[in-house]
Amino acid sequence: MTETSPSSLSRRDFLKLTWAFFGGVVAVETAGVFLAYLQPRLAEGEFGSVITAGLVDDFPANSVTHIPNGRFYIVRIGDGGFLAVYHRCTHLGCTVPWDATAQKFVCPCHNSQFDQQGTVENPPAPRPLDLFALTIENGEVKVDTGDIIQRQTYDMAQVIYP
């Protein structure tokens, strides 16, 4: 066997490489199996599925209503548009209550504050409160809690009108 030939890989080195390669494949496969096995599964009808929040007329204009089992607020802004705002603080995950007198969301954990549309008024929260996909069918407000929408700013395109 000569060193100059391009196919000068010795039998021993070839076998070593083959073993290393298939060993690596097995390691990656095993890690993949573990990760796949540990993936979270969501139960039907619980948080994570589509939840009916109520009828359109249940929510007066300029109101904020907590839907605890869906983990969201139905925010109906002044002009009658709807937002489904996730009640989880974007800072460290605390549940953010609506302060009706101050007209804002105030997180008890680290004092992040958000206005009615969920925009950050006071850090440390790094981005507005997340939204859920909201649809209105036959006068019913439905929220898909499996679909968390992160946003950097509030804009009118996020508002759903009946």
Binding site: P68, R71, C94, T95, V96, P97, P108, C109
Partner: peptide, 9 residues
């Protein structure tokens, strides 16, 4: 209670 964050957490 997942709905009630203590203050402070």
């Amino acid at each position: 209670n997942s709905a009630l964050s203590p203050n402070p957490a």
